[in-house]
Design a binder for these strands. Structure first.
Lengths: 230, 230
DNA sequence: ATAGAAGCCGACCGTTCAGTCAGTATATAG
DNA sequence: CTATATACTGACTGAACGGTCGGCTTCTAT
């Protein structure tokens, strides 16, 4: 709380922006709300996640967060029980979206190699759609129970991808001279790094990006040989 | 400083461990020191970096750091002017080692593709050798001047690799259907992810790891076609 | 008109934080 | 022994932290 927030115009401009329900959030909540207008949980969440990313979760005080929201510090506690609860919700959004990918029919039916490619491609899209939340997720270190639970869910996702890789390997679609666990780490090292640099500009950006990721992951950077591997 | 440190046996067991000078540190400093024995800067640094990684830099208080060192909090200030100075030194070690790779003769002479491969391979080795410091470097977000300077040096390193990629592309050794900057990000996304999971066990581990990284980066995960691309 | 619901504020509390300071302890060199 | 260099301690400070509390404001529904 460095500079006193202007007492005029509390929020009212940017609270609850979009809330586009497309990849994990329940689509409900369109009806007119009852009481005094202002932030709801999702509105707070969006801005909080941005702040957590910019300064880091620990380094973001509830005071500076309140400044960003143009609210008093105590008002935040009307919406969330604690700072950690905000983090919990933010991580859950990202994890739900990732976990949902594994439940999609194209991730459960067909050749393992096709399922693998689908999961990788959709993971890129989830990263782009939930960029701030996934960014936050990838920075969690496991110091609290909330963080440890998020790490656990991440590990389970990784395990599913490793299993997929091993299936694709048994199918003969994937090289066997690299350990599946190492391959998975390198794969998602590449994919997850997207949050560090990618900023969307066009509507087809994510598709192009996913194509590039799949290309490098499966065929590598080397110039294709005369007999095209694909 | 949660629990009072035992007044007995102050340090004396683990201060200044090894200090193996092989990849960036000047080899001097073997002679007997003068005054009261105990930690020197490097000894503090090693343990501090470990703590910063475990809890995160912001979440690591000077109190808990002192507990780890079996020292009083104020003793740390005998060696370092501030918490941020510790971070600065730790980041500098990592960056110096990385920057030194670009100055090696194999990174400056010969085909661009060979130079590129050399830089990638050596980058993996630097990551392994300076694992804690590089881990810390990759978590820096740029909130202070020290952090911003570290990010600047990282960007310069990335720029050099992008230039190398563009040279290799002009040579015809690297595919041209992916933007060089995107390719570099994905490459180092993969390489940098190593700090998240790799823990050394054998002496040849790093070589094997570097081989795997080069393989995936250049040839991809797909099973090699009958006409071997390599 | 009024009741209920939702959102918000300012003052405040106990704790923890990075950093300071004056003094003490233990080593080597002469 | 003395001088000097290095390492360390414990008590402390002001600021910032997450969180609480009682009361207030602004909306919809009836």
């Amino acid at each position: 709380m460095t500079e006193t927030a202007l007492p005029v115009n509390p929020a009212a401009a940017n609270p609850a922006p979009e809330n586009t329900p497309s990849e994990g959030t329940p689509p409900e909540g369109a009806a007119q709300r009852r009481g005094r207008p202002g932030y709801d949980q999702d509105g707070i969440l969006t801005i909080a996640v941005e702040a957590f990313i910019e300064y880091g979760y620990d380094a973001t005080s509830m005071g500076t967060l309140a400044d960003r929201l143009r609210l008093s510090k105590s008002a935040i506690y009307h919406h969330f029980a604690s700072k950690e609860t905000i983090l919990e919700r933010a991580l859950d959004q990202a994890l739900r979206a990732l976990e949902a990918v594994l439940d999609e029919p194209q991730a459960r039916e067909g050749d393992a190699s096709a399922r693998l490619e689908h999961v990788l491609r959709r993971a890129v899209h989830v990263l782009v759609r939930w960029l701030p939340n996934v960014t936050l997720l990838l920075r969690v270190r496991g110091n609290t129970a909330v963080e440890r639970d998020a790490l656990r869910r991440r590990r389970e996702f990784d395990r599913a991808v490793i299993a997929l890789l091993e299936e694709a390997r048994a199918e003969g679609a994937v090289r066997t001279d690299i350990d599946a666990r190492v391959a998975e780490r390198l794969l998602f090292g590449m994919i997850n790094s997207i949050v560090e640099w990618y900023r969307p500009s066009g509507p087809d950006d994510a598709n192009r990006l996913a194509d590039d990721v799949i290309t490098v992951a499966l065929d590598g950077l080397r110039r294709p040989t005369p007999s095209p591997p694909r």
